[in-house]
Amino acid sequence: MKKNLLWLLVPALLMFATTSCVTHKPVQYLEGSFDTIPLKNVQWKEPVVQPGDLISVVIYSDNASASALYNLNGSVGVANGINTGIATASNGNDTKGYLVDKDGNVTIVGVGKLLVGGKTKLQISNELMDYFKRNDLLKNPIVDVRFLNFKITVMGEVARPGSYSIPTEKVNLMEAIGLAGDFGPFARKDIVTIIREENGQRSFARLDMYDASIFASPYYQLQQNDIIIIPANKKKEAANDQMTLRYITVATSVISVTAILINLFK
């Protein structure tokens, strides 16, 4: 009789504990109908170099030995594209680059100080190629400029908050949230905050992920070092309290059952 009662009590307790879990509705985006015509064009602004950025500058030409004079560590740059990386970046590459100072300058090997702040990669590349051609230093020079620390940070109610390196140097808000594992069950999707630092100024934007007009926002396409914050809704606090109550209830039940079993087997 005692054994039969034991086998009845334990499954009942386990069933109670497992059925106390919270179920959540799937995440919804872009609710309702909207006009796709004004939103069909992709608005992407090429990122510009900012103070604190780490950039790679690799020079190629028809003469490998001559190119090596202008590359960090004497890397051989030739026109066929061999040996493209030069510095140790935050993403774990063995690539060394130039850290942009507070005034937006870097000192290029064999060239000297160069203002890169506020310029795009293409502008920097063209400026250097013009320098080599104008001074007859390299034959058919090619300059490859890349960001080595292009990253965004996602914080708050997502599955995997943290900083993410973007090797393609191009990412939008939805892609960033996808990288972070999507919204959590208690995320406020209507007030996603983006913090951006540009030209020494900090700006803020709040986007509503239910509203298709986010595609027209200049903050939808992210820039390097952008921070995305997803706050929690009011249900999270209530859910935490409810979960704590469930844990207390389960713990009390376990203690009660244990006491009963002890009395039965005495």
Rank of each mutant, 00 (worst) to 15 (best):
K3L: 13
N80E: 14
A187M: 08
V78W: 12
N4R: 14
T36S: 03
F147N: 06
V49K: 04
I82W: 10
I177R: 05
K25L: 12
D241Q: 14
F215D: 00
S90K: 12
R246G: 01
L122K: 15
F204L: 15
L138P: 11
L245A: 15
E31H: 03
I86R: 12
F186E: 11
P26H: 04
I214Q: 00
V22S: 15
Y60Q: 15
K102Q: 11
D182R: 12
G77M: 04
M243C: 06
N105E: 08
A180D: 01
S163L: 02
V145F: 04
I37R: 00
M243P: 00
I230P: 03
E237D: 11
K119I: 07
S125M: 06
Y220F: 15
V143T: 12
L30K: 00
E31C: 07
R246K: 14
T107E: 11
V111C: 01
P218R: 05
I228R: 04
L72W: 03
N140G: 02
N93C: 04
G178Q: 13
Y219E: 06
V171D: 05
G52W: 02
K96Y: 11
Y131K: 14
R196W: 05
K266S: 06
D190M: 04
F204P: 01
N4V: 12
P141T: 03
Y29A: 03
N105M: 12
K121R: 15
L115V: 09
K139L: 11
S256H: 02
S33C: 01
L99I: 07
N135L: 10
W7E: 10
C21R: 15
N140C: 03
I255N: 07
S217W: 05
I214D: 00
W7A: 02
G32W: 03
K189Q: 14
W7H: 12
P141E: 02
N83D: 09
V116K: 01
D208Q: 08
V109P: 03
A212P: 08
T84V: 13
C21V: 14
Q28N: 13
T95R: 09
